[in-house]
Amino acid sequence: MSGYFDDIQFIAGEEIPNCRVHVDRSFPGIYSFELILDGRMYFAVDGQKEEKILTAPTVHWHHPSHHYRYGPVDEKRGWHHLYLTFHGPRGRRIVENALMREEKRHFQTLTNVMEVLEGIRWLIAWINHGDLHRHPEAVARFELVVAQFTTGSEQRLQHRHELELREVIRTIHESPLLTPDAQSWAASMNLSPSHFRKIFREYTGMPFHTYCLRARMRHCAQLLARHPGYRIYEIAEMAGYQDPAQFSKLFRHYIGLSPRTYQHHLLRNRDHGSG
């Protein structure tokens, strides 16, 4: 039986400071997550006659059922390119459900560059290092990169409270174990708590409390990935839960597995990778 982390496999990853390649092809069986850190590139999908000009910072991705055509706008300068390629059912779900979503787009302007950049660089280093027993941690980190990226959707950039809301989101991700406090954030923005919750939901697509819980549980999953020897009650206490059963219920809801099962898969993959 395949393990929880076995349904996505990373193929390659690289950072190219001055990429000037021209691409006109599909990528059968392969998905990708790619960052334009600097520069510009033209971009078209499935024979589109009108090319889009993608300007840094932008993320784009490949899906094997589509044909892509792109390259540098300036042949001399190129663009600063970072990419990850991967395959497997989880990879497909990440691209289709988290990235393309209902708009079926293939690129997105990036607002939280440093968080995404740090995660991609870690993954590129890991892919090229070949430390297989850290595969579960790599999967957890990649899912966090995608989660951080999707909090910076281009469609939210026009919100008049954008700067304040981005600060709220940054704080949630940097300190996910803090107790959610919508009232304090509302006061700092001169809003009523109910109005703050309303605009936060408009901006992120989910209620404030739900967003905070998801960030907290993903942080706990990362703790288990980094320290699989931790006991469940220790993780629960670190997350502020005195009742491990309540913690386990929330963990299962947001991660998809109970913390004990998640930990079991981590240990099994670690043993397999070191064997």
Rank of each mutant, 00 (worst) to 15 (best):
F247C: 06
G256N: 08
Q155N: 11
M1G: 12
L132F: 10
L110T: 01
Y254D: 08
T261R: 15
P193V: 05
P72A: 06
F33P: 03
Q9D: 13
E174G: 06
R201E: 11
F27G: 01
Q108M: 13
I127P: 00
Y203A: 11
I235L: 05
H265D: 13
M206D: 11
T85I: 02
L54E: 00
R101A: 06
E143L: 09
K76A: 11
H60M: 05
E14A: 13
L132D: 06
V139T: 03
Q246C: 11
L213V: 06
H209L: 14
G275P: 05
I255P: 00
P244M: 08
H264I: 04
E167P: 02
L213R: 09
S248I: 04
A125T: 07
G47F: 03
S175H: 12
T111Q: 09
M238A: 14
D46T: 00
E115N: 03
R201P: 01
H264M: 12
L223N: 02
H195L: 11
Y68K: 01
F86L: 03
V139F: 06
G29P: 07
G205I: 06
P193D: 07
E75Y: 09
Q263S: 07
Q183E: 15
H272A: 14
R270A: 07
K49I: 06
I232E: 05
F27Y: 10
L223S: 02
H22D: 15
H22R: 13
T109S: 06
I36N: 01
P180F: 08
A12Y: 13
H22K: 13
S26P: 04
I199D: 07
R231Y: 10
Y241V: 04
P64S: 03
A44Q: 03
Y31I: 04
D131K: 09
Q9Y: 05
L123Q: 00
R170H: 08
H159S: 14
E174H: 10
R156A: 15
I94A: 05
V95C: 10
I255A: 01
T171D: 13
S274T: 08
T204H: 05
Q9F: 11
W122Q: 13
H62I: 01
R260M: 11
S184L: 15
V21S: 13
T204W: 11
A221I: 05
H264T: 14
N269Q: 14
Q108E: 14
L250S: 11
E202P: 10
A215C: 05
R197F: 04
H219S: 10
T171V: 12
T85A: 10
E234Q: 15
A221F: 00
E103R: 08
T85V: 02
F5N: 04
L144W: 08
T150P: 02
M217Y: 10
W185S: 03
F86H: 00
R218V: 02
I199H: 05
R268A: 15
H22I: 13
H209Y: 14
I124Y: 01
W122T: 07
E102P: 00
G273N: 07
P207K: 04
T150K: 04
H159G: 09
G205W: 05
H87I: 03
Q246F: 06
V59S: 00
R170S: 12
Y83F: 15
R20Y: 04
S192I: 04
F107Q: 03
H264G: 10
R101S: 08
V73G: 04
I30P: 01
